[in-house]
Design a protein around this nucleic acid. Sequence first.
DNA 1: GGCGTTCTGTTACACGCTGTTACCTAGGCC
DNA 2: GGCCTAGGTAACAGCGTGTAACAGAACGCC
Lengths: 247, 247
Amino acid sequence: MTIPRLLVVDDDAETRGMLTQFLRQNGFIALPCDSESTIRDQLGSGRVDLILLDVMLGDEYGVDICKRLRHEQDVPVILVSALSADHHRMAGYEVGADDYIAKPFNPNLLLARVKAVLHRAKRSSSLTYRRSISTFRFGGWCYDAKRDEVTSPQGYQVSLSRKETALLKVFLGNPHIPLTREEINTALDVTGDGQDVGSGNPGRAIDVLVGRLRGKIEADPKIPELLRTQRGVGYVFAVDVAVEDDQ
Amino acid sequence: MTIPRLLVVDDDAETRGMLTQFLRQNGFIALPCDSESTIRDQLGSGRVDLILLDVMLGDEYGVDICKRLRHEQDVPVILVSALSADHHRMAGYEVGADDYIAKPFNPNLLLARVKAVLHRAKRSSSLTYRRSISTFRFGGWCYDAKRDEVTSPQGYQVSLSRKETALLKVFLGNPHIPLTREEINTALDVTGDGQDVGSGNPGRAIDVLVGRLRGKIEADPKIPELLRTQRGVGYVFAVDVAVEDDQ
DNA sequence: GGCGTTCTGTTACACGCTGTTACCTAGGCC
DNA sequence: GGCCTAGGTAACAGCGTGTAACAGAACGCC
């Protein structure tokens, strides 16, 4: 594959420059833009693999631009924002952004997200989109969503607890995408009770939960092949996931 | 089957966004709406499988909208509300809502309800609607409502107590719908006297009752196939129920 | 009424699930 | 190497559920 070409869209010159430089240092072609018109120029003049789009672009919402771009083209978009409140995040997803990252961001995380989105985009073109989710296959394992059963490559059944199952589902839905503990937590909270004395969890429940899931679905939990740790970031489900419909 | 398309109707942007994202994370296509007119836009522009409708929509009662929609179309509706009082619930059912869920709701419960309603909708189109209920068939078992007899897949008779029968009926009437202990209790009370020294039951009668029913109609009560537990939620009758009319 | 049987709710205990904590190791930086 | 921080994990505690045992209620029969 050729070197990915990214547009870095931000009206603040300093941020734009920093981001551009950082991405170039990490092997990407980064093209700085500061407005919708410059984005269109770039899109018109050559291949663009991904757009990093600031949510606040002068007077205009990046969200709106994202919406328009999505209508016209199929370029993946990652929204970047200083507003980390959840509803903004929601808004980002609603308009079809492929991912969303809040400033100030961990450069490692940004890089990982960029790679993940590119990876996904590459496959989605040749993959049929999931329909009625029924069976997931990953690294020899099989998860039957209907029966809620996990089968090992050797064919024996493994019973997962409710939380473990929920965690597995989160990863199955986001293969190759580095997930922070906070994100996993949010995803699980949504699946879970929805209760809560303490809104966030101060502890390290995710770490323990990941450890427990590793104990059940990793050939050697000491050397995780599926649930990889990304130090300083979180965890990634590092294998492809094939989804089979229930016909 | 293709991915179910749901309308999320709520005038509060935050709730709407949260719900939308949650549903998307769980494999649905969720389309946010904030008014009756946007609902109609969506209904006009493509297939909609289910509407999640907030009871309070600005000045207007979601109930009224539900009533109007029901007059025109055959889309299933789940009413969502902060008003959990029973008479509101009743009002919801009267206007033809397929289910009703109170805020703040357990996300698990919501998801399960959504699936249940979709499941029901899918079958109802090919199933004649129950008339004079006579015989229920479920997972090889048969319950004759007229004679009040339960027959096992192997053909032998099983005698249920009054409460056990009532419980079975509650589940037969709500297959695939997770029921809380409170709901089951209410449903049973309705069947019973409707009296009560202590309105709610402090004890765990439902748990014991479910255990007893399991002992009679589960192949292996240790691994329930019919009466599944949903931790933190309640119980679900996890098989299809076929209803046969009395000619 | 007295008695036995069946039904049903309560209680107590067992057990599995899950979050917290504490301690240890691994990785990164000086 | 030393130091610091992030992550792995064993141990523990709290909670929800399954269920056996018990007691009282309901019912039928004499």
